[in-house]
Nucleic acid binder design. Sequence first.
DNA 1: AGCAATCTTGACTAAAAAGTACGGATTAGC
DNA 2: GCTAATCCGTACTTTTTAGTCAAGATTGCT
Lengths: 155, 155
Amino acid sequence: MKLSANEEYGMRCLVRIAYNAQGLTIPEMSQAEGVSPAYAAKILRVLRKGGFVKAARGKEGGYTLARPAENIVIGEVMDALGGKLFESDFCDSHSGQHAICTRSVDCSVRSLWRAVQVSVDQVLSKTTLRDLMQNEEEMNSFVRMIPGPNGLRVM
Amino acid sequence: MKLSANEEYGMRCLVRIAYNAQGLTIPEMSQAEGVSPAYAAKILRVLRKGGFVKAARGKEGGYTLARPAENIVIGEVMDALGGKLFESDFCDSHSGQHAICTRSVDCSVRSLWRAVQVSVDQVLSKTTLRDLMQNEEEMNSFVRMIPGPNGLRVM
DNA sequence: AGCAATCTTGACTAAAAAGTACGGATTAGC
DNA sequence: GCTAATCCGTACTTTTTAGTCAAGATTGCT
Ligand code: FES
Ligand code: FES
């Protein structure tokens, strides 16, 4: 259960763009993130296809947010970058004689995966790009208020 | 953010062993899970090295739990099978000029990853192998009581 | 129009993860 | 002590993911 390279770089690129209203070019992003221009381009492509950033070509071109940061939900970004942990068709694929995964209709392991997915979504669906445009301490306070009165004890 | 093959098969193998107090052999596991014996062996090795199961060699051999199911915390099993999503040294490795990931001491993205990790741990650290030895409905009820009064709305 | 800065795309290569193969070691039963 | 059933470890192959390359297309400037 790892963050993929796409997810890791993608999120950072998106935050950088959010901070640069005038636009960021591939060479600039490459420099900032310390990856090759070609790789930066590949990552930005995913973000563009996901509809989170838009690109302007030609001189004076570059990437900007496709919509205001507060309308960009991190859960959707993460889906575009790396997909869900557990999708409803997850259990359709595994073979073997299902004695625990009984006939795919009664399986406690599936229930566990679903619970983990829900738990992750609780954080990601409530966080927008705007929330990430603040310092770490502020972000920690924000996150402590998820999901309910109890919140997450992050620190 | 995907479950690795190790995590997926590893958890299922462990549950199967939990259900078979008399022990399960590699060929049996292979059959049950529909994977090659060699692959079943590889997965079981990880579980053994993690200290969750023990193996008996020779005729009449096979795998059994190393300790009672209620003492096996799923969070620890998942760590052994696939590692943490976010470890404290995660941010030491990424290069580039840190203007958002400012000098690695102030980064809202890191805070997000940490929050996701905490959220996952809230589920996994409270679940034991014993909890998985019940049907899906019972497991759902159990999981609804995590982490606090609010619980997870799984269904 | 011509040029330079920029994004776009698909194909390629490298690295990591998933899955296989095989020779070796241990144990129970005879 | 022999044999069959079992686990053990390493090295190999395949598949997936990560990362690179090169040729093309768009735009602003002069
Ligand atoms: S049915 Fe998918 S893990 Fe059991
Ligand atoms: S310091 Fe690691 S994501 Fe920012």
